[in-house]
Amino acid sequence: MKKKHRKGIIFLVPLIILFITILVFIPFKQVLVFEYENTKEVLAYIPLKKEQAFKIKYTHSIHLSDVLESYKIIKNGNIQQYELMFEDFAIGMPSNASEGETFEEIDGKYYIRNMKQTFPYIDLRTGQVRANHRVIFQSNEYSLSDYIEPGTWVRIKMRKLSVIQQLKGVNIIES
């Protein structure tokens, strides 16, 4: 009887080790990830569940007013910009909506809505002086400089992370 028990344990131990290895190293958690440049090194992330929309807010370096870019993750994992809000028609800002989009002015702010620009990722250099890039998720605003060194080039995209990858980055929501 003891021999059968040992054989069961000998068979079960490698199976448990294999299961733990798969659990730790196989990407499974869907996140909005902020990677260092294009290296896939995870700096920070936001876990995604039902809410798959986010916004990036920053202070424009020339006219020093806020710009708010609204995005959502679409079915193929790409990022779609659906709205832009700004306060000044200065350098670097659009002067009107493109075909199929709507342009509105409400309380001194300009909105371009119904945008359908899609990207596999967004490259962003976090501001060092004035920009103060923030990400807004589920009505909460998080300053990227709290998690990512100002001046860093980050790539923002939807990705699945393993437990090990999650440990290497900072969960913006939980920190």
Rank of each mutant, 00 (worst) to 15 (best):
I17T: 09
E101V: 09
V154S: 11
F11H: 07
I164Y: 15
M85R: 14
T39R: 11
P47D: 12
R6M: 14
E99T: 11
Y71W: 14
A97R: 03
L43D: 09
S70G: 10
K55P: 00
R159V: 06
V67S: 10
I136Y: 07
L161T: 04
K29F: 10
K157I: 00
N114I: 01
H60A: 04
V129C: 01
K7A: 12
R134V: 05
V170Q: 12
L84C: 04
E99V: 10
I79L: 15
K75F: 09
M115W: 07
V31C: 15
L144M: 08
V31F: 02
Q52N: 15
F11C: 14
I20N: 08
Y71C: 04
H5P: 00
L64A: 05
H60D: 12
N96D: 15
F103N: 03
I148D: 06
S61W: 12
G8Y: 12
K168P: 01
F119T: 04
L43H: 08
K160E: 14
G151N: 01
R155W: 02
E37C: 06
V154M: 10
Y111D: 08
G151M: 03
L18Y: 13
I10C: 04
T152N: 02
D107W: 01
V129W: 02
L124S: 07
G108V: 01
N132V: 03
H63N: 15
V135E: 05
V154L: 11
Q52Y: 00
F137C: 02
